[in-house]
Computed example of a mutant assay.
Amino acid sequence: MGSRRFGAADQALFDVVARRGADNAALIQGACQALIDGLDSPALRDLAGASVRDRPTDVHELVVAALAELDIPYPGTIVGPLARRPGVDVLRLDIGPADDGSFQVRVHVNGAEMTSAGAGLGMDPYDILIPTNRLVATAVPTRSPIARCGCGVYGCGSTDIAIVRDGDLVHWDWLLEMPMGRGVSFAAADYDAEVDRVARDHSWETPARTAGRLVLTDLDYDRLAAFGLKPSWVANHYRYPERFLVALTIRDDYQVFVTTPWRGRGPEELARAVHATLAAPPAKWNATWHPTRPALTGPPAIAGRSWRRERI
Rank of each mutant, 00 (worst) to 15 (best):
P56H: 04
Y154L: 12
A162Y: 09
A119G: 08
S116D: 07
R20S: 12
A26E: 13
V184A: 09
A247V: 11
A247Q: 13
V16A: 11
G101W: 12
Y126D: 06
A295P: 00
L224M: 11
V52T: 14
A280H: 09
V16R: 10
V16H: 04
A287N: 10
A276W: 02
A22M: 03
A295I: 01
Y221S: 12
G155Y: 06
R19F: 06
P300S: 03
H290N: 06
I130E: 13
S51P: 00
I146K: 00
L62E: 05
V16K: 02
V215S: 06
T206E: 11
I78E: 07
V52Y: 05
S306G: 06
P179W: 12
N236P: 00
S158W: 03
L62G: 01
D168W: 02
I130M: 11
C149K: 05
M180R: 15
R143S: 09
D46Q: 15
T288F: 06
A137Y: 03
P42K: 07
L169S: 14
A50H: 05
F6E: 02
V195R: 04
D100T: 13
V198T: 08
V107Q: 07
L214T: 06
H290M: 14
V170D: 09
A193C: 02
S306I: 01
L270P: 08
D168Y: 08
V16W: 01
A199V: 04
D89T: 07
V184W: 04
L245K: 08
T217F: 05
A283R: 15
D89A: 05
L129A: 03
L229E: 01
R148T: 13
F186H: 09
T77W: 12
V195G: 08
A12R: 14
R293H: 10
A117T: 01
F227Q: 05
Y126R: 15
A276Y: 02
E268W: 05
W285L: 12
P56V: 10
A48Y: 01
A225P: 03
D99N: 05
